[in-house]
């Protein structure tokens, strides 16, 4: 099981800025191990962010996103104390969902 994400959400005026740090190996499938065998690709494929049940961002990622991916975006609305939910699915079918309180 992957480690939890670190999510920070701050509301400034009428927009909420969300910053996410995920914990994932993001193996490209291009590297070889010491025995010369290709290390299979292992990376996050889909990311979804929701606020109050409404999707505020979806993303599809390839293996070229850095290890332990960082993502930040902004959406209109959001109030202090509300929750923002982020979830991802990787190419092995592993999933992780975390939520943060907007500050």
């Amino acid at each position: 099981m992957a480690d939890p994400m670190r999510i920070r959400a701050n509301v400034v005026g009428d927009t909420t800025e969300v910053k996410v740090l995920m914990s994932h190996e993001m193996e490209t499938g291009q590297r070889k191990d010491s025995a010369g065998k290709v290390i299979p690709a292992w990376h996050i494929q889909n990311v979804t962010a929701t606020y109050n049940g409404k999707t505020v961002l979806t993303a599809q990622w390839g293996p070229a996103v850095s290890k332990n991916p960082f993502l930040s975006f902004k959406f209109k609305g959001g109030a202090k104390g509300d929750k923002v939910q982020i979830s991802w699915v990787d190419n092995r079918g592993e999933k992780r969902t975390d939520e943060a309180t907007i500050a």
Partner: peptide, 23 residues
């Protein structure tokens, strides 16, 4: 090796501005 890093879908209400890190 493959050009595409990621695709971000922006629904209405979300700012068309994203930041991430890539290889």
């Amino acid at each position: 090796p493959n050009m595409l890093v990621g695709v971000f879908d922006i629904p209405p209400g979300t700012a068309p501005s994203i930041t991430t890190r890539m290889k």
